[in-house]
């Protein structure tokens, strides 16, 4: 597991969430799961209500609510409501909850993929949609273990590039560094070169990706930028390379 705040099965989510609920929220939640168990369509109106019923803060005590990789209480609540949907109805209801959902609801659907069983086809559809947004909450939630499991190598490489563009910490993505291919290392080095040539900074986590399969020619090109006549480029090259572990 990439992140210690990320639970992996419904029992674990239940335990985390239960510890954070007061009596009213616990009662609402238990009743909601029962209703969904009896009638899967009940999830349509209960799912949007989760944030105001069980709260919005980080799931783990002391967690950082602004960290896009951190599970929130409503993510846990939503994942458990979807877990209560009959497996036959689940793919359709899950997809509709995403389609009709706001960003928090969509994040909840994406997080649920970590703890409920759905077809890879449905998972892939939702992960692809999330990766097309520029919303860091959705991009981060799509890049958990279940999300990256449905991406092939090309898709994974594009997802990691997307993540660096929206300033996510690459080391928090599931599959980093094990799934990094030589092609992805090369692409990330080219990204660094492009940023350096523009005189811009890069995050230190790019090196985890580049150094999995260090591309000698690309690294030499970035190294050469240290001596560029444009002082902005030279400074950007020095800053990027000096951050390399």
């Amino acid at each position: 597991m990439t992140d210690q705040t990320a639970p992996t099965d419904p029992a674990e989510v239940t335990a985390h969430l239960d510890a954070r609920l007061d009596d009213d929220a616990r009662a609402w939640f238990a009743e909601s799961r029962d209703r969904i168990g009896d009638d899967p369509a009940a999830v349509r109106v209960l799912f949007p209500a989760v944030s105001r019923r069980v709260g919005r803060g980080p799931l783990a005590p002391g967690g950082d609510g602004d960290d896009p990789f951190v599970w929130h209480r409503d993510d846990a609540g939503r994942a458990l409501l979807l877990a209560a949907v009959d497996p036959g109805a689940r793919p359709g209801e899950l997809r509709d909850c995403y389609t009709h959902g706001d960003a928090r609801e969509r994040r909840g659907v994406l997080r649920s993929l970590e703890v409920v069983e759905v077809d890879d086809e449905v998972t892939a559809e939702l992960v692809d949609d999330a990766l097309r947004t520029n919303d860091v909450r959705l991009v981060a939630a799509a890049l958990g273990p279940a999300g990256v499991a449905v991406l092939d190598d090309d898709g994974f490489a594009q997802a990691v590039l997307k993540a660096v563009f929206v300033d996510l910490d690459l080391e928090r993505i599931a599959g980093i560094p094990d799934r990094v291919t030589p092609e992805l290392s090369r692409m990330m080095a080219d990204f660094v070169h492009e940023r350096v040539a523009a005189g811009r900074a890069v995050p230190a986590s790019v090196w985890t990706v580049i150094d999995r399969h260090p591309p000698a020619d690309r690294l030499a090109a970035i190294e050469a930028e240290r001596d560029h006549e444009d002082p902005h480029r030279a400074a950007a090259a020095a800053a990027a390379l000096d951050a390399r572990p």
Partner: peptide, 10 residues
């Protein structure tokens, strides 16, 4: 048909 979902939003 879709209204109940939207009436449930924050």
């Amino acid at each position: 048909e879709v209204l109940p979902r939207w009436l449930a939003k924050d």
